[in-house]
């Protein structure tokens, strides 16, 4: 029973982590001129877009996330690998969270003069990623391979 639960949690964790890369990690809304509608600056694991324009050099956070998720998946067979994968996923999530926090606070402080009504915040992707970390560690706890 523990084995089944562990496998389910590990697969869910890896799937959630991979899925998180497709969701927004941060969403910044700004109006570049008075009276103009706000434009969204959205970063996902695979692209950064400002309105309809793609940043050709946007950071590909999806790569380290998918690699860590793959390690979590391999952990279905070995508990120690599952633990290492969960830790790697936590490291990715931690560093990404710090980076996004900086991007959001920088946007809020740096552009407030351009658009006092600007909005900035975390996207659902980072919360799903953190959820994946919790699931992965939960799977390690119930993993029977000791």
């Amino acid at each position: 029973m523990k084995k089944v639960l562990s496998v389910v949690l590990l697969v869910l964790a890896a799937g959630a982590a991979a899925g998180a890369t497709l969701l927004p990690f941060s969403e910044l809304l700004i109006s570049l001129a008075p009276g103009q509608p706000q434009t969204a600056y959205v970063t996902t694991g695979w692209s950064t877009r400002f309105g309809g324009t793609k940043d050709e050099h946007g950071p590909l956070f999806g790569i380290p996330i998918v690699v860590a998720a793959a390690a979590v998946l391999v952990g279905v067979r070995w508990r120690k690998v599952a633990f290492a994968g969960a830790a790697a996923l936590a490291g990715v999530a931690g560093m990404l969270f710090v980076h996004l926090l900086n991007v959001i606070s920088f946007h809020e402080a740096g552009n407030i003069a351009i658009d006092p009504g600007l909005e900035a915040g975390f996207g659902n992707g980072i919360w799903v990623l953190i959820g994946a970390v919790v699931l992965a560690f939960g799977a390690v706890v119930v993993h029977p391979d000791d």
């Binding site: 790569i63 120690k80 290492a84 830790a87 790697a88 560093m95 990404l96």
Partner: peptide, 14 residues
């Protein structure tokens, strides 16, 4: 293991 794997993940984002 947690420290090394976690640091590898953080380096990946960097």
């Amino acid at each position: 293991v947690a420290g090394a794997a976690g640091q590898a993940g953080a380096v990946g984002v960097t």
